[in-house]
């Protein structure tokens, strides 16, 4: 297949490189399955390319991207249910190791993953956007359509729980190592 040739668009490519990892991780947090992450991330940036004139300020890019990612994730969930049976029939790739093999999970990452799994959706997303992605409270409020005070409240509560979990983990490590 001959790929359509696209004029170089340095501004768009810069936006892509700045935010692709953010979009990828957010889609993952929204429950997009590993095998669909690649396509879903592309979907987001295809929409971004089409609507890039709507973005006037890079400072608000992440909450804007979050909104697009949320809609794409919703589409993926719908489609995924429909094609799950087809995916099961897909022969395994002969090229390279599977995604999960490439991404060796560290013990620390597993710990955080387990912690996030124990949170309700509202607290999990606020915590992930603030302390994993580094969004500010106003950005999170805009992305999740919450009041800033609600963001602060959820963040305070979740950070406290996380610190307790970290302290327990450290205590266990000290016991295990004598």
């Amino acid at each position: 297949m001959v790929m359509p040739v696209v004029d170089a668009d340095p501004e768009f490519e810069a936006l892509y490189h700045r935010h692709q990892a953010f979009v990828w991780r957010i889609l993952r947090r929204m429950g997009v399955p590993s095998e669909a992450l690649d396509d879903a991330t592309q979907d987001v940036f295809v929409v971004v390319h089409r609507r890039r004139d709507d973005l006037h300020d890079d400072a608000s890019a992440r909450s804007w991207l979050f909104g697009i990612a949320r809609r794409v994730a919703s589409d993926v969930h719908r489609r995924h249910r429909r094609v799950q049976r087809k995916l099961d029939a897909l022969p395994s790739s002969t090229e390279g190791p599977a995604l999960d093999d490439e991404l060796a999970r560290t013990e620390a990452a597993d710990f955080v993953r387990r912690f996030l799994a124990g949170l309700d959706e509202g607290h999990r997303m606020v915590f992930a956007l603030a302390d994993v992605e580094g969004l500010t409270a106003p950005e999170i409020a805009e992305a999740l359509e919450l009041k800033v005070n609600t963001v602060y409240s959820r963040l305070r509560n979740t950070r406290r729980r996380f610190e307790k979990a970290v302290a327990r983990r450290q205590a266990r490590a000290q016991v295990n190592h004598g």
Binding site: L37, V132, E133
Partner: peptide, 16 residues
Amino acid sequence: AARDLLRAFRDDESPT
């Protein structure tokens, strides 16, 4: 310590 754990998590979750 908490920030270190979150950084490791973020790296682990990021695309290659």
